[in-house]
Every structure is written in structure tokens, then in C-alpha cells.
Design a protein around this nucleic acid. Structure first.
Lengths: 336, 336
DNA sequence: TAATTTTGCACAATCGTTTGAGCGTTTTTT
DNA sequence: AAAAAACGCTCAAACGATTGTGCAAAATTA
């Protein structure tokens, strides 16, 4: 059923070598006669021959495959990012193995070793957890790794991320400029570098405005539930905030859910500023004002850096922070 | 850097065969002494040996990989579906190569042949276009294929899809029962079987209710733009519909956009019923009433059928339609 | 002690491709 | 006509793992 060089060679009474040379376009280089070349090409076409990438990989020690470790395709932010990465990888004639780590450090590390065993030529990863020894081992001993979104500070693995500090700072400034004083921040995973940068931006903006007494950071997960529960708590406090800065798309959904249950309206009773951008946010009630990350640029750059490394080109600056963009919605009210 | 059976064998002064037998757990079966076994295991641990899946694949003619052809990871419906499929595949110890076809028939066919060249053990695909000769060739000659969501009628490729007819019918009935008479339907790709089943359900419900004079189907793409443009046209007609049945999530977004631009409110001025379910729809203005497809069940079943075929177990019924569920939102008003 | 069985491991082929080296035969050069 | 060059192709090893067969040496039996 499956054709190989040898089946063709046998049928034509030539050697496997000759067939290989013809079909890999090296007929001239190795002085195969036009006649033989034509015969081989014809037969290959006839039987629809396609070389086994597995055999080629074994021989060339290149699988033309890259691995993508993403925390959750169900999250539109990572789904979009994956979509861009897959298409960039495809553009270069490679294929992508996708592993969904479900935000789990064990899955992440297992996925990593699995990719190494599969001899992928490179890995793009959104890491989970704090322990970076395995990733670093892989990156320096086996396969080039590039991180996206999340990263490890002061470690030599290249990464591309948003300037999360700027995102946190700008967003908070926007709220402050709108007159808000009591701005609560609901954060995600506390060990995640992007999260902490966003929080740092938030804190700096708050302090700079002399609002330190109102500074308030809660939460510990990038989930709807976390946003929901923390908002429940916030709204039960004696002094309710006038604005919430939610550090992810999912957290914002939780905030909205809790706000609705409390019978409060956004932005009249409570302002909301979200991290992450997504088409649907324009269609929400109200459309969310948000900090959009440059997902496509990050995906393109990460892929480019990875391929530069695969091809042995040392990339210049390989730890990059791209600026986020604030997208105006209607979820922030002006306070006089 | 990379360890292999032979590097270990050489260091220990034993044969590659012996190392292989020990590490694949066949030491007993081939009478390798406990002492040798221990030495080999120790050394394998020490140097962190992991077998090359490429070499194993070549030898065993099994790559333990399945291919997933999806139209667009940027669409949450397919992203969720992919997420479930990837996780089901992972559960079985396989990995998934994802190809984003971008709703393009050429990309789809290229992806298909690429997967075959990579010797994947099976393929799960959401097909694009009408020409199914290539898919059928692959399915019957090389690799088992299972289709999800879209399918080809009267052809022997297994598929799992929503009972789209029921979805179209039930949704339309819901609108009719709410008192609507003039219900317009904005459809997606006209050559897609699910689309046509939805339309058929719509038409049947309309006719059954004696509303044939109001029957109206427009559109030709599962995109925001299509929903937007068709709604623009609809709203400019002399007789505006009182309800729109949008046959996909993206089409609905377009409908909302056009409706807003026209200064009309949903559901007060126009009712909207959407196909597809997504978390964000609960947070929209208004929350959408919609026909949710059993995405997770479809993913699980498709994967199961594929693995049954891979393992040579003939699946019983392999062309399945799962019932959709109507999810109540607030985008449909009652007309008296 | 000789014959038999068991033990412990190695040889070599195989999967499908690539590639440096080599070897007859024909053609060209001197 | 002899030497050199060009031509057209094949051999065999290698990538890393698996597996049926086989062969000594040791242990057991007769």
C-alpha cells in the first residue's frame, strides 16, 4: 500500500540510491541519465510516492516539527496566540505539535519531555509553575525553547511578552484620571511574572497618585471563579471600591457575574478595567475597557526567534517586552 | 549530547540488543541476568536516556501521533473542540499535530497529505470545501479519518456532528412559539452539510407553522462580516423581520453590530437566536439565546471512534448526530 | 565423565532515507 | 593506440530502535 524508495527501485530495476537522488532533485549532481530520471519520475508520480518523513527525520536528525505548550486552548487569548504561532510555523514548512497543559506544572513538564523524545526541532512554551530547571535543561541541552507570555526573570531562556508593567500602570492611570480613588486589583497566579509586573504597575500608579491608603490587591488565579469570588468579597466590604482592575479576561467575567448578582451596574455603580482583548468584549454589557496584548506580534516574534535559533543564527535581543494597547470600551465611568 | 541505546551499550560493554530488552521491560523474557539489568537501568537513569520516538516510529510503523485539521483556532467553537480532542488524544498516550486550515480547501488538502507523509496513525478533521476525493483516498488507502462537525453525506467516512436539523427546527420553533412570524435566517457556507441541515430545520418549522410567505434565507459565510452585511440588507428592507436566526456564533456578532449601528435594541426591536454556545454569550448585551452544540461529547466520540479504528475495532454506528441544547438568554422577545 | 539442559547474551536484519566512496564502461584527449 | 576523463550507476554505512535466531558457557542430569 505504502510506497517506498525500494519498491520503486525494485520495479524499475535500479538501485535505491538512484531513485533517492532523482526524487530529491540531485539527479544532475550525481550524473543520472535523463532517461533513467524520467523513468523514475514517471513511476513515482504513477504510484503517488511521498517520502516518509519519519525516515527522513531519523536520518537527518531534524523532524521539521516544533512543539507548542499552551496552558489552555479554551482560553481565547491562548487560542488566538496558538493560531498565530501555528500559522507562522506552517509558513516555514514545519508542523506543530500542540500540548494543552491545562495550567498544570506536571503536565507542562511531562509535555516538555515528551516533545524532546519526539525530537522536535524547537519548542514554544507558555510555562506553568515556578520550577524552571527542566525547561532550562531542555533549552540548553537538547532543544531550543522560546517562552511566550510568561517567562523567568534573570534566566537565559529567550522570551517574548507584553510590557505588563506598562499595561498595569497605564490601566491604573486611566482609572485614576477618571477620578477613581479606591481601585481594587484582582490578580491571577501570584508566582507568574506577568501577573506580578501588572501588579507592580498598578501599585506604582496608585502610590504616585498618593492613593496608597486605597491600594488593594486580592486573588490568586486567572479564572472566572477567582474573579467571581474576590468580587463577592470586595462587594461585601464596608468600603466598596469604585473600580476594579481585573488582571485577565476570565477574571473579568467573574467580576461581571458577581456584580450582576449584587444588582450593581457597570459602569454606573462600579467601573471595570480588564486585561486581555477579545472580539467578544465589544459585544458585552457594557463593552469592556481593556488592556490588549499584542498577541499576533508576540506570536510572530517568538516564532522568528525560535527559527533563528534553530538555524543557528544568534538572535539579537531575545528577551522582549511589547507594548500593550488600551482599548476603549464603556466599562469605566468618570467620577467627579 | 543525545543518548541512544548504542552509547549506553558501548559504555557498559554489552550489546545494543541487551540494553533494548532491559529498557523495554523484556529482560526476563530474554533471560538477562539481574546484575546486567541493574547495571543497564542505573546507567540509563544516570544519563537520562529516553528512546527516540522517531526511530521507534520507523521500526514499528506507528507514530503514536494523530493529526487534527481545524478550520480556525481563532473561532472559540473550534478552539474548544480542539482542546477537548487534544486532551482525549493525550489521555491515550498519543500526541496531536494541529493544522489550522483557515477555512481554505487548498490548505485542507495540503494539510491532509502532509499528515499522511508524517505517517500519523489517524486523522480527525473538520473538512473544508466540497471535494471529498482526497479525504476519501486518504481514509481508505492510508490512514483512518474521522470527521467532526462537517461531513459528507452518503460517503463511508465516519463522522460525529450535531443534529443540525433538530437545532434549526427547535430554534425556529422557539421563535415561532414566542409569536414571531417574520423570521429571517442568515446562513453560513452553502455547501456545508451542517449549514444546510440547519436551514432545512428552519424551513420545515416555518412551513409547518404556515409562515411560508415569510421564509427568508440569506448569507454565505460563517463570518462576522457576513452577519453584518446581511443584517444591513435585512434592516433596509421594506418589511423588516422581527427575528433573526443566525446560523453561527460569528454571524451573530455581525448581526449585533449592524443592529447597534441601526440604533435598534435586541430584543425589544429585533430578536436574535444564535447557533453555537460560548461562555462570553452570557455576558453579552443581551445574553444570547442560542443553540449549543455538544462540543465535548462530539470531541470524545470522534476520538473514540478514531482509536477504535486505529486499534482495528470496527466501530458500530459511526455516523453520529448528537442533539443540541437550547440555552436561554434574553435575546428573544415575546410578540403578542 | 559425557550428554543434556539452562543461562546469558550477541548477531544481524529491518524500518525508509541519505550520502561518500567506488567501480566498470564509454568517450575524449594526447 | 594508450592514457585520461567523463559517465552512469551501485555499495554500504548510518540514523536508533526492535526482534528472531543462534551460540558459547555454566549448570544440571544421567
Amino acid at each position: 500500500m505504502k510506497e517506498s524508495l525500494s519498491t520503486i527501485a525494485e520495479r524499475l530495476g535500479v538501485s535505491v540510491t538512484t531513485v533517492s537522488r532523482v526524487l530529491s532533485g540531485n539527479a544532475g549532481k550525481y550524473r543520472i541519465s535523463k532517461a533513467t530520471e524520467a523513468r523514475i519520475r514517471a513511476e513515482a508520480d504513477r504510484c503517488n510516492y511521498a517520502p516518509s518523513l519519519v525516515a527522513q527525520s531519523l536520518r537527518s536528525r531534524q523532524t521539521k516539527t516544533i512543539g507548542l505548550l499552551t496552558p489552555s486552548l479554551a482560553n481565547p487569548y491562548f487560542a488566538e496566540m496558538s493560531s498565530f504561532i501555528i500559522s507562522e510555523v506552517h509558513r516555514r514548512g514545519f508542523t506543530t505539535i500542540v500540548i494543552d497543559t491545562m495550567e498544570n506544572e506536571i503536565n507542562f513538564n511531562e509535555g516538555l519531555t515528551k516533545l524532546v523524545a519526539r525530537q522536535v526541532d524547537g519548542i514554544i512554551a507558555v510555562p506553568c509553575g515556578q520550577d524552571h530547571t527542566i525547561v532550562e535543561g531542555v533549552n540548553s541541552n537538547f532543544v531550543p525553547v522560546v517562552l511566550v507570555d510568561r517567562y523567568y526573570e534573570n534566566f537565559p531562556i529567550p522570551y517574548v511578552t507584553t510590557n505588563n508593567y506598562k499595561g498595569g500602570y497605564d490601566a491604573t492611570r486611566l482609572l485614576i484620571d477618571a477620578g477613581h480613588k479606591s481601585i481594587a486589583c484582582i490578580q491571577g497566579v501570584r508566582t507568574s511574572a506577568p501577573n506580578n509586573e501588572r501588579v507592580r504597575g498598578y501599585r506604582d500608579a496608585i502610590e504616585e497618585a498618593g492613593l496608597k491608603e486605597f491600594e488593594f490587591v486580592a486573588g490568586n488565579e486567572f479564572s472566572i471563579q477567582n474573579g467571581y469570588l474576590e468580587t463577592k468579597l470586595l462587594l461585601s466590604r464596608h468600603l466598596k471600591p469604585t473600580a476594579i482592575f481585573a488582571l485577565s479576561n476570565n477574571i473579568s467575567l467573574g467580576v461581571i457575574k458577581a456584580t450582576r448578582e449584587a444588582g450593581l451596574r457597570i459602569p454606573e455603580d462600579l467601573s471595570l478595567l480588564s486585561f486581555d482583548n477579545y472580539t467578544y468584549m465589544d459585544y458585552m454589557e457594557p463593552p469592556l475597557t481593556r488592556v490588549g496584548q499584542p498577541v499576533e506580534d508576540m506570536a510572530i516574534l517568538a516564532t522568528k526567534i525560535l527559527f533563528d535559533r534553530i538555524e543557528g543564527i544568534a538572535p539579537g535581543a531575545s528577551q522582549l517586552r511589547l507594548s500593550p494597547t488600551i482599548i476603549q470600551g464603556a466599562s469605566v465611568s468618570r467620577i467627579i
